[in-house]
């Protein structure tokens, strides 16, 4: 039975990131979460596995902290999970991430499809799917809005800026799905309770034969300073607030 892999990233919840007085960031207290669009990728992989008569496998590359994501991912429908447990994930760039994931895909064997989310909540670099495709030298389809299968062929509809493009590819392939692909439902409680019983395979960094040295050097990371007037009319009657606003906009010359 072929496998459909859903790649997901365990990221810091951006709403928990604190900005220090000097604009540096404190991510230490941030809770983890499955990257928003990766939920759609997991759901898409589960549906694809159903259509192909295969098994959906959740795959993540992360630090030891990412272990806590496995039950969450499994509660969303995949039959099993694979976890590349590597401290190097903390410093990984697009190149390292794709090589690690691709190496795991090779280890898992008999993979017909790799599904990624269009971009991660933290970096939103949108490199992973095309890069995995390049490393494996498999066909890649990005910006996928819907997908169907015809034997060993995959027919995907892509959303571009000005058109919807239908393309056909052979399996195995890599796709990156848009959030519009499905609604990625909140998992039911039963699925949560049974998640822990599903098999998990763990790979260590050394198992994969991948060069974990990142290609980019991060030189600074700081909060983006929003520089707006923030004149907020919060007191008094609505009519007065509206009058004050229209006067201000007229003065700005934007009406």
């Amino acid at each position: 039975m072929s496998k459909v892999i859903a790649c997901y990233k365990w990221v810091a919840d951006e709403t928990d990131i604190k900005v220090n007085a000097d604009s540096t960031l404190d991510i230490s207290k941030a809770k983890g979460k499955i990257s928003d669009y990766d939920r759609n990728a997991i759901e898409a992989a589960v549906q694809a596995a159903g259509a192909l008569g295969g098994t959906a496998v959740a795959l993540t590359f992360g630090t030891p902290k990412a272990k806590q994501s496995l039950k969450d991912a499994l509660s969303r429908g995949p039959a099993e999970a694979c976890y590349i447990n590597a401290e190097e994930a903390a410093r990984a760039d697009g190149a390292v991430t794709a090589k690690a994931l691709a190496a795991a895909v090779k280890k898992i064997e008999n993979v017909s499809l790799v599904v990624c989310g269009e971009g991660a909540s933290d970096t939103y670099a949108r490199q992973t799917a095309p890069r995995i495709g390049a490393v494996l030298d498999w066909p890649v389809i990005t910006s996928v809005s819907s997908v169907r299968f015809d034997g060993n062929a995959l027919i995907a509809v892509r959303r571009l800026e000005d058109c919807m493009q239908t393309v056909k590819s052979e399996l195995p392939a890599v796709i990156a799905v848009l959030p519009e692909m499905n609604s990625a439902p909140i998992p039911g409680l039963k699925a949560v309770l049974s998640a822990g019983k599903k098999p998990v395979t763990e790979f260590k960094a050394g198992d994969l034969g991948v060069d974990f040295a990142p290609k980019t050097t991060v030189s600074a990371l700081k909060a983006y300073a929003m520089n707006r007037k923030s004149v907020i009319f919060s007191e008094g009657e609505i009519a007065d607030k509206v009058k004050e606003l229209t006067a201000a906009l007229r003065k700005e010359g934007v009406l």
Partner: peptide, 17 residues
């Protein structure tokens, strides 16, 4: 347990959204 924490997270998301 992890499962119970996940259940609560999911309930929280359901309630909020």
């Amino acid at each position: 347990t992890d499962e119970q924490q996940l259940i609560l997270n999911n309930v929280r998301e359901f309630v909020q959204t």
